[in-house]
Write a protein that binds this DNA or RNA. Structure first.
Length: 273
DNA sequence: AGCCAGGGTCTGC
DNA sequence: GCAGACCATGGC
C-alpha cells in the first residue's frame, strides 16, 4: 500500500480489496455514516475522519501522514493483504459467492474498549438501535471534538457513573453491563493492554469476567478490537449459516482467518433477498 | 399483537 | 451440562 500527502489530504494509492462503504457499514462498527454520496465520516481513537474512494485511490481528507500512520493504517488493517485470503475463500462455494458480491470488506481494528462496549450494547439488539444507543453514549459522555463529533467515552469516564446515569441511552438491561465493564477495565481487573499479548483462550476468559460478556461478545471484541482474525463470533445469523451451509463445520480454506470469513458470510446472508 | 434483534444471566434440574 | 424464563427497547 502506497500513500502520500497531497495538500491537506492523504492519498492511498492503488487501494486493493478495500471497499470503504462495505467495511464501514457491515455491522462491525457503529459510528460511521455516509455524509454524502460515497463520502464517509466518523470518529475513531478520538479523531474525526472523512474518506472516500476515487478510482484506484482512497482519499483521507484533512489529515496527515502522521495520523495516517499512527491511526488509520492499522484501523483499516492496511498491513494485511486480503487478496490471497479472498482467493483462498474461492475454494468454498458459499464463500466464493459472498466474496464475489462483497469484495473489499476489511476487518477494522477498533479501540479495544470501544469494541467491547459496543458489542455489550449489541446483545439481543438490532443494528439501527445499537447505533442510536452508542451515539447517545458518545454525545452524553464523550469529549466534544467540534463540528458535531464526539469521542467514544473512556472506560475511566464511565466507571464513575451510576447505572441510572445511563438511563438517557435507553440501553435497557445492558446499562449495568456497561458500568461493570467500565469499572473492571479501569481498575485493570480486565487489563485490555495485557489481552493484546495473550493467547486467545486466556483473552476470552479475561473478557468473560465482565457481566454481560459471553462467548459472542468476547469473540466480537477480539475480532474487531484486537484484530484477532481467528476469532469467530456466532450470532443468530451466523448460526443459521452454520446450520444450513456448514453442518460439518467451516471449510479448511478459512483456517486462521475464520473471523474474516465470518464477516463476509454475515453480510452476505443478511443482505440476501 | 407478537416476533425479532450481531446474547447473557440466573435458576432449576 | 442443559433448558427455559427473563431481561428493556423499538421496528415491523
Amino acid at each position: 500500500m502506497q500513500y502520500c500527502q497531497k495538500g491537506n489530504d492523504v492519498i492511498l494509492k492503488d487501494a486493493k480489496c478495500f471497499d470503504v462503504a462495505l467495511s464501514l457499514d457491515c455491522g462491525q462498527a457503529f459510528r460511521w455514516h455516509e455524509a454524502s454520496d460515497g463520502v464517509w465520516h466518523g470518529v475513531a481513537f478520538s479523531t474525526p475522519l472523512t474518506l472516500s474512494r476515487h478510482g484506484d485511490e482512497i482519499i483521507f481528507y484533512d489529515t496527515t501522514i502522521k495520523d495516517f500512520e499512527a491511526i488509520w493504517f492499522d484501523y483499516f488493517d492496511l498491513g494485511r493483504n486480503y487478496e490471497p485470503i479472498c482467493d483462498r475463500f474461492g475454494q468454498d462455494e458459499n464463500l466464493r459467492c459472498a466474496v464475489e458480491k462483497y469484495y473489499g470488506i476489511r476487518i477494522l481494528k477498533q479501540e479495544p474498549w470501544e469494541a467491547l462496549c459496543s458489542f455489550i450494547i449489541s446483545q439481543n439488539n438490532n443494528i439501527p438501535r445499537i447505533k442510536g444507543i452508542i451515539e447517545r453514549l458518545c454525545q452524553g459522555f464523550g469529549d466534544d471534538l467540534g463540528n458535531g463529533d464526539f469521542s467514544f467515552p473512556s472506560a475511566k469516564r464511565l466507571s464513575v457513573l451510576a447505572v441510572d446515569d445511563l438511563a438517557p441511552l435507553r440501553a435497557g438491561f445492558r446499562a449495568k453491563y456497561i458500568i461493570d465493564a467500565a469499572r473492571k477495565v479501569t481498575d485493570l481487573q480486565v487489563d485490555l493492554k495485557k489481552i493484546c499479548n495473550e493467547d486467545i483462550d486466556s483473552a476470552r476468559a479475561d473478557l468473560k469476567q465482565i457481566k454481560g460478556v459471553g462467548d459472542k461478545v468476547a469473540e466480537c471484541t477480539l475480532l474487531y478490537g484486537f484484530n484477532r482474525v481467528e476469532a469467530f463470533p456466532v450470532d443468530v445469523w451466523v448460526r443459521r449459516i452454520m446450520q444450513t451451509m456448514y453442518p460439518q463445520g467451516l471449510p479448511p480454506c478459512t483456517a486462521g482467518v475464520e473471523g474474516i470469513a465470518q464477516q463476509y458470510l454475515f453480510h452476505y446472508i443478511r443482505n440476501k433477498k
